[in-house]
Design a protein around this nucleic acid. Sequence first.
DNA 1: GTCTATAAAAAGATAGAC
DNA 2: GTCTATCTTTTTATAGAC
Lengths: 216, 216
Amino acid sequence: MARPPGHGPSYEIKRQEIIDIAAKLFSEKGYAATGIIEIGDTVGLAKGALYYYIKSKENLLVEIQERVLDPLLSAAAKIQDLDASPVAKLRLLSEELLTVIFERLDHIWVYEHDYRQLTGDNLTRMLARRHEFESVVRSFLINAMDDGYFVQTNPSLVVLQFLNMHNHTYQWVRPEHGEWDAKFLAKTYCATLFTGFSGGTCDLAAIEAEAAAYQG
Amino acid sequence: MARPPGHGPSYEIKRQEIIDIAAKLFSEKGYAATGIIEIGDTVGLAKGALYYYIKSKENLLVEIQERVLDPLLSAAAKIQDLDASPVAKLRLLSEELLTVIFERLDHIWVYEHDYRQLTGDNLTRMLARRHEFESVVRSFLINAMDDGYFVQTNPSLVVLQFLNMHNHTYQWVRPEHGEWDAKFLAKTYCATLFTGFSGGTCDLAAIEAEAAAYQG
DNA sequence: GTCTATAAAAAGATAGAC
DNA sequence: GTCTATCTTTTTATAGAC
């Protein structure tokens, strides 16, 4: 995170480039199956030089996780503070989540597959941040039920359906095809989920209009 | 699969037990991060004895994948042959899929995470079988649209929502808690999805009744 | 059938030359 | 900053004794 003292700005630039490449390789072969030498080869550095920039292999994994969680949690906090209906907030969060998935697809593969390979404090901290995000989703969904938008049911069950729908997208989406983007998928997912959660009584057009008003 | 000639029936029993244990360990630590020695230790065999039962580490992975795909594809084929409405077929397939997830949760972790570590023919064959299953889902959903149960849209988009909802369940479900079972989750998922896909016009009770009639 | 011993390769990480 | 050389451990897999 904070770079060692005595390094110029090019140090941090190269460090970020190394994390980029690690994320790409980890996403393709898995964290455990990717060697440090392979990362070095792809960056264009021998092992010794690579360790000048990184602390350890696990630390690369930590930074990749944070590149996912940072934008996710900051988006969640911003939406939480809006004076919008809970369904509009869910619609905005859906799009933010899918935006991260589209923009950092390789990071998401690592985020979804390899977080359990973290150890000690790294694992504890990362799990806490994951739960933090899920809590925001949960609060929006509970508010939507309490305000009469959705039928009252077990909140956990609704949270998990919402997350299932979004969090499995990384397995098949192809951002480079340009066929679908985050906004379109958010609209589609929310149409299905909100209609289902409300028993068909949801005014989708109104929700889209309200969400759009907050996107400027 | 076919056991080497000259072995008694206890050979195959122990072989299956080794695959059980491998699936458990792979699901907890990941395929690449689990060593052959660790598997031997858990089984209670030294490395040499272990290789008397297995061909290679990758072969263990192949067998685990097949333990998931075999019941999935045979269930899909059976449902396909029923003289039922496409929505009832989807409801039945949903329950079968969730049944496999509940009964072989450790296998599913490996199935979802580590299939890309297969090489050569193993990878090709396994990908083909995965696509086979998805084709069945696709055909049911297209039939449901053509028969007027669901609103007409891009089939791929409907398939992927259906699969997202189901295939991410392994991440959070806890069969040992007994709180939810496959039938309950299938009912819940299908209620959300079918209401969403139909725009709220679906008769859920009728679908449940029709599906139940086929379950004896 | 199960073991120990051994290969032969590759892993993560460090030291020190340049 | 980057390299090579080295350390230490671990990996999958085999050979051969018992």
